[in-house]
Structures are given as C-alpha cells and as structure tokens.
Design a protein around this nucleic acid. Sequence first.
DNA 1: GATGAATGAGCATTCATTCAT
DNA 2: GATGAATGAATGCTCATTCAT
Lengths: 212, 212, 212, 212
Amino acid sequence: MSVQKNKARTPVQNRARETRKKIIDAAEALFAEKGYHRTNALEIAARAGVATGSFYGYFNNKKELLVEIVRNFYATSTEKVLNSYKIQVQDNTTANYQEGKKLIHSMIKALYDSHTINPSLHREFMAMVLLDREIEDINREEEQKIIVAMTSLLNAYRVHVRAKDIEAAAILLYRISEEIIHRIRFMEEDFEGDRLLAELEDMVTRYLLVEG
Amino acid sequence: MSVQKNKARTPVQNRARETRKKIIDAAEALFAEKGYHRTNALEIAARAGVATGSFYGYFNNKKELLVEIVRNFYATSTEKVLNSYKIQVQDNTTANYQEGKKLIHSMIKALYDSHTINPSLHREFMAMVLLDREIEDINREEEQKIIVAMTSLLNAYRVHVRAKDIEAAAILLYRISEEIIHRIRFMEEDFEGDRLLAELEDMVTRYLLVEG
Amino acid sequence: MSVQKNKARTPVQNRARETRKKIIDAAEALFAEKGYHRTNALEIAARAGVATGSFYGYFNNKKELLVEIVRNFYATSTEKVLNSYKIQVQDNTTANYQEGKKLIHSMIKALYDSHTINPSLHREFMAMVLLDREIEDINREEEQKIIVAMTSLLNAYRVHVRAKDIEAAAILLYRISEEIIHRIRFMEEDFEGDRLLAELEDMVTRYLLVEG
Amino acid sequence: MSVQKNKARTPVQNRARETRKKIIDAAEALFAEKGYHRTNALEIAARAGVATGSFYGYFNNKKELLVEIVRNFYATSTEKVLNSYKIQVQDNTTANYQEGKKLIHSMIKALYDSHTINPSLHREFMAMVLLDREIEDINREEEQKIIVAMTSLLNAYRVHVRAKDIEAAAILLYRISEEIIHRIRFMEEDFEGDRLLAELEDMVTRYLLVEG
DNA sequence: GATGAATGAGCATTCATTCAT
DNA sequence: GATGAATGAATGCTCATTCAT
C-alpha cells in the first residue's frame, strides 16, 4: 500500500528533458545564493520559468531535487579528481623523492581544482552533509572513492613512502587537504591561502616521504 | 532595518534567571536531538515548562536564542582548551624533542577533550556555522583565540620547532586536528579513531619538530 | 516515534472553549450548506471569525473536526430517541393490541423527530457514512444502541408480538423506518410523506402484532 | 453559465469507441476501489492505457464521465429488474395467495440480484446520490421506473392485495427492500442476511396479501 | 486524433510572533 | 511577569484542465 508514490515524470520528450534541466539549474543557482532552506518550490519554478506544478511533475519534493543535485555535484567532482589521479599512476618504478613530492603536489592540486566548480553551492552542501543522513551518505560514498584512489597511489609509490599505515595516511591526506581547501575556498579565511597550502604540502611531504 | 525592539527582559530576579536557564537548556536539548530548523518555539517552551509567551519574554526571537547558546557553547569550549594550554607554557627553556612531542600530544588532546561536551549539538552548530554569517563570526572569533594561543605555544618552543612559518603552522595544526577530531566524534568515521589520531600526531610531529 | 502528534489544544480558558465552539458551529453550518468536501479550513475559520491557525489550534485536521461533529450529532440524536423510548417501558403487563399500535407509532415517531435537528447536515453525514470507514463505525455504534433499545421494547411486549425473530424484527423496524424517514425528510420524495408513514405503520403493525 | 463547450468527440470509428470504453472501464474500476473523489484524471488515463489528453478528448470533465457511468450503471440495473418483472405479469387472473407470495419473493429477489453487479461501485454511487443533485436525479428517474413497474404488478394482482394505497405500497416495498438489500450487500451488516430477508418477505406478505 | 508536458488556482498545514487576560 | 490563545503570512503539494507537438 505505502509504496513510494513516485508520480514524478521521467522525461521522454526533449522538451521535458529541457524543463527538467531548467528546474535543476534554477535550484542550483538559488541553493547557492540563498541556501536550501531559504529556497522554496515556488521560487525555483519561477526562476526556471515554469509553473509550480511542473516542479512537482519532475520531483516529488524539494528534498528529492536536492539529492539529485548533490549526487550529481559530488559525482562530477569525484570524477574530475579520479581522472586527474589516473594520469599519475604511469611508470613509477624508478620514482624518487622529487617525483614523490610532485605526486603529493598533484594530489592536493587535484582536490583544490575540484573545489573550483561552485564554491558557495559546495559550502551549502557541506552544511547539508551535517544536517541530513541521506546527503551524508552520498558524500561519504564519493569521498570513499577518492580515498581508495589515494590509497592506490600511495601504495604504488610505497618504496619511497615512509608511513607504515598507508590506509590511515590516505584518509589523513584526504581529510586535511579537503579541510584546508574548504577554508581557503569557502570560508574566506583571513590568512593567505598560498602560505597555508605551501605549509600543508611541506607537512604532508615530511610525513609521507623519506628524504634523499 | 528598523531599530531592534529588544523587549526581551534581562532577568534580575533569581526566579527569572532560572526560567531563562530552563529555556536555554530545553532548546539545547532539542537542537541536539532534532536540529535547529526542526525545533519550534512552542516545543522549546513546552519542554522548558513555560508558556510560549514567556519564551519571547526572554528572547526577541528564536535566532537570538540560538546565538546565545552557540556563543556560550563555543566560549565554554574555548575556555577549556585555553586553560589546558596555560599549563603547558611553564618553563620550557630547556625543552627538548621529547617535550615537544608531549606538547603536540597535549595540544591535540585538549582539542579532542573539548569535543566531548555535546557531540550532536556540536555537529549541529558546525552546520549552522556554514549556513549563517552571524554564527560563523562567533565561531571564527573563538577559533582565533585558540589559534593565537597555539601560536604562542609554538613560539615558546621555537628553538625546537622546525617550521619557519609559525603562524601558518598554528592554523594548520588547529584546522587539521579539529577536522580529524570532528570526523571521529561526529561523523562515525568507519576507520578507527585511534589509528587516525596516532598518524595525525606522527605527521604533526615530523612537520613541526627537528628530531634529536 | 510516530505517536499521533496531537498538537491540538485542549481548551482550559473560557475564551478557548468559546473559540472551539465557534469553529464547530461554523463548520456545521458550512457542511450543511455546501457539504464536507466543498468546505475548506480557510472558510470555516473565516465563518467562525477566527484565524486559520486557530482552526489547527483546536483540530489537527478537517477530518478530525468532522468526526467530532458527526459523533456529537449522532450522540445527540440517539439520546433523544432513547429518552423517548424510556417512557414507553412503564407498565406494559396488561398491554393489548391498541397499546401495541401506540407503541409502534411512538417508536417511529421518535425516529422521525430525531431527524428534525438538521436535515441537510444529516443528509451529508449519510453520505459520509458510505464514504468513510471511521464515520461508518460511529454511525453503526449509535444505531446499535437504538436497535438494542427497540429489541428491549419489543421483548417487553412479547405476549402481543407476533414475530418470532424479535432481533431481526427490531433491525427491520429500525432500518425501514429510518429509510422512509430519510426519504421524506432529506430526499424531497415527491410522494406525500404522511401517506407513506401511514402505510409504514400499517405494515409494521400487521407484521408485529396479532390482532384482537 | 457560458455555453457548454462540448469539445468532447463522439466516437464514430471503432478504435475510438474502444478507447472510450477503456476509459470508462478504468474509471469504474478506480471509482469502485478508491472512490470518485480520491481518483484523478491522470490515474484513470494511466489505467486505461491512454494519454491524459485523450481523456479530455472523450469527456469534457471528470464529472461528465461519472454521470455517464452512473447513468449506464443504473440503466443496466433497472433493465435487469424490469426484465425480471415482465415475466411475472403473464396470466395472473387466477392468481391466489400462494402465487402472491411467489410474486413478492420474485420482486425482492430481482432487486437483490440487481445489487450483485458491482457492490462497491454501487455503494459509492449511493453516496454520490446524496452529494450531487445531478446524480440524484438520474437515480430518481431510474428508481421511478421500477416503482412504476411494481405498481403495475401489484395492480395486476389487486384482487388479492390487501393494501388500499397501492402506489404507496409500491414505494414502500421498493424502498424497504432496497434498504435491507443495501445493508446486506454493502454495509457488512453483522446480522445474517438470510434471516433479515426472510423477515422482510414475511412482513411484506402480511402487509400486502390477505391470507387464504 | 493522440500524446504527455505544462499550467496555476486551490488547499491543508505550520509556526514565529503578538496580545489579551 | 506569566500564561496560552490568537494571528496570518508562508509553503509544500495536488489535480483538473489546457495546449504544443
């Protein structure tokens, strides 16, 4: 009886696909501008240039739309990072300290770049991750993919990696890089971002690599 | 933009102070349980055992109450950390590597302990920091105090501290410690907290101190 | 967790009791005029001269209000009928055919009178009984009381009652009387009500009593 | 009060007639399952396997569809009853009490059988009759036909019929039979239907016929 | 004719805040 | 001061009906 109603249309016509896109785009813009809680369905529809009813033709409710946007956002972001990581993995048998340093730099750089997409939306989503279990799960899943990739990269360079607990190292590397990047990109940290990033790289290098 | 009405009374009598306290306690409990957005004034008053009207006798609005709770929460937390740091500063002229290690451990430990107070409320506030500029400012101010204290501590140990950019180092130390602690305390990180904390300390030690 | 929210106020002040009454009266009037489905909460509140919010201060939803009104309506109606029946039960040891006739007449008359209260509301409720299980149950319960009372009356007159299956006879008597009365009072039956009622009494008399 | 648009097509092609039929069947099924008010156009179209637009190609609105279904339902039902009654009218010049009893049984039986078609749809329509004047009129018209037929039958048997007011008797017979049958077929009356029907027949027989 | 996307008025319900007692 | 009743704007969502393709 209480099967999910799921009356939301799945677009078959092109027009429908466009409308759906318009709604998503409008919602993204509004979530970024005023935040999810301060945005309502009417507004989203208005900004998308469609009727309120159309909103509910494509999404059963505001939350469902949020989930779709979040999922898509993180997926895109993760993909970007993972693509960047794939390039690193070639030919590292003769890797040395300098190349290790380069790897670390590249890893952090990739994370940094993935935060360029839509900072204020990203900030909003960070809050949602804390407020909503479903969003938290989506985020966790995507993060896990990156951590796994990082673990692989570190394993590939193992001979030169000082740390014994590679798994913990990967998590640490991911978490602290993300944190510092968030501060720089979302929180208008007063301190200069470059100085912070430089120290971060220095720290991670000292932690992960054996010199010489 | 009209002038703040500020009809909320400032309690002078003892009974009034107690009522105010009851409201704050009820709100804290509810914010922790269901989050700020999902809690309404009626509920808070009911849980506090007072009338709805009384709520507005003490607070001009819900947000004002939140601000007070947040301010108090962070102040208490900061105080705890700063108190713990004061103890560290005595007599470090003859400090050596081992004592440096101890210092780092203590600094992180103090932060960790300050996250023991009310984890789910803390998590809620982390979200509010991202969602509300006023809350963000309160948080930033308190954080700044800790970072300043950390900078002092590191400066006191300067002879043994490897890092040149002490200010950046303090920020980094604070931010990454907080991040890892949040993960462990609020996010039910799958990975064992101890392993993560151990690596964190190892990393920070390598970064900050010169061995031997 | 999913305990009935039941935020609806239970009035303690006099003012509250009056407001509640105003809402019920307004709803009754509107249900009678335009029917339950065509009446909305806004309208009820407006007619009652209160704010929309007040409506939901006293009733969790429109259905709950309906149930209360229906319950009260049928209870009042039943009470009226039962009171009338109590008078009949005195001293029937020497009852004869004529008194039996009088009894039957009184029984039907009592039912008829109970349909004088608010015919168009009554008609609306008859529809609701068919459309909603909860309303159906309320109705059934009240009907049962009358049928039980009728059974008692017939039993008291048993010596003169021809019918063997008194229980069935009571149900029959109740049902067909109600039906004919409904037709006359609610359905603007073209045929003259008096003629119909006369025949009804004749029929029931022939069925129930042995002549002479 | 503008002129009825009446854009709904009247199907001439076979395919169109079939589509129309599919819509009617789907609506009937849904009205029976969930009731008229809880069924919407989208659902009907979906169940019928046609587009929403097609629905309005055949019917100007939901109500129009209801009216058609109701009209058809009652017409079929009436026809069934009337057909059954035609058989009774042959050769009753020599009719006696026993045949009178048989006639009464047959009349009630015919009504009972006409309630076999689709009980839950029938119940729904009974409610609609109370809620909507148009539906009420349709129902009244069909009922009238049966009452007329019953009057004729009773008149044909007049010599043996005790009642003087044949017209009232026919109405009474129809109304009370219908009522008891509804109770048995639609309302899950706790009491056994057979016992009730037996008493009903007994009552009607005593009322209508002179014994011997 | 058929399709299904789009429309938007309509309605139930919530809740921060005010106010009469 | 305290109480809790009253307020009404705001919002999520539905659905009969229309319309572009």
